[in-house]
């Protein structure tokens, strides 16, 4: 991502952000509410358009590609809220990720190419089961999402994104609302994925978690990068501390919890 700008009306949600994520890198993205973190993920995954700037994935420009092609390029994501489909089992939800490659063939192929469909169904089921095992939920496949507690439900979302076999994984506050033990499990999982060579961008409010798992951190405020570097450096940065503890924007911090609830 280079010099990306996104404006909503007069608000500059992203104001000239440049960002590169390498294979195996786990990039932490921090910043107060409204600083542009989710907008950044939405821009990378092509859920929203840039007003200027470019997006490249492995050297290929996809700035104007539709969102489903971003996934085809190897970008998978989770969302800030639980977005599992209630009419399907947990395994079938994860299969939505595992079937992504086959879905790219288009509706007619997936509808009418029966011999291939049967093979794909088996493959997707196996891949989805493996993804569930990877996040530690191997026995929950037959359950329905609404029967799961919040923590496991969020892990299912990670499994669904992993089932796409992405090269770049975008995680929007994956551990928000989880217990401490669950947070640690997810932290370990993300570190392992990073060791396997997966590039990741992690949006997270829990700075301890960021320090523990990330190997690089970018801090945003008002849509701009205010600090970048190793986790310890960024955490010590004067601007970052100011943005979080709120000298300039104390009012914003006070309203933060309400925004959080509004998004749920």
């Amino acid at each position: 991502m280079k010099d990306a700008r996104v404006a909503f009306g007069g608000v500059r949600a992203l104001d000239g952000v440049s960002l590169t994520v390498q294979d195996g890198q786990l990039l932490g993205l921090i910043g107060p509410n409204g600083s542009g973190k989710s907008t950044l993920l939405a821009a990378i995954s092509r859920m929203i358009d840039l007003s200027s700037g470019t997006l490249t994935m492995e050297g290929r420009d996809y700035t104007n590609a539709p969102a489903h092609l971003a996934n085809a390029l190897g970008i998978a994501r989770t969302f800030q809220t639980v977005r599992l489909l209630r009419t399907m089992s947990v395994l079938e939800n994860v299969m939505l990720g595992a079937q992504a490659e086959w879905v790219r063939r288009g509706p007619l192929a997936t509808w009418l190419w029966l011999s291939r469909a049967r093979r794909e169904e088996k493959r997707a089921r196996r891949a989805a089961q493996q993804a569930l095992e990877r996040v530690g939920l191997k026995d929950l496949g037959r359950r329905h999402p609404q029967e799961l507690p919040y923590g496991p439900a969020r892990k299912v979302e990670i499994a669904r994104a992993l089932a796409c076999e992405p090269k770049l994984l975008l995680l929007d506050e994956p551990t928000a609302g989880m217990s401490q033990a669950e947070r640690e499990e997810v932290g370990i999982l993300l570190s392992e994925l990073s060791k396997d060579g997966l590039a990741q961008v992690l949006v997270e409010h829990d700075l301890a978690m960021i320090q523990r798992v990330c190997n690089r951190v970018v801090a945003l405020n008002f849509g701009q990068v205010i600090a970048e570097g190793l986790p310890a450096q960024v955490a010590a940065d004067e601007l970052v501390r100011e943005a979080y503890l709120g000298h300039r924007d104390a009012g914003m911090e006070a309203s933060a919890p309400m925004m959080e609830i509004g998004r749920q």
Partner: peptide, 28 residues
């Protein structure tokens, strides 16, 4: 056939959450 397997799940995703479907390669 349209209710089963890949296309069945895909159409449910398109119905329930278009943006999510897009993020999973579905040309909605």
């Amino acid at each position: 056939l349209m209710q089963r397997g890949t296309i069945g799940r895909t159409l449910v995703a398109v119905r329930e959450d278009e943006q999510l479907a897009r993020s999973l390669s579905v040309n909605v």
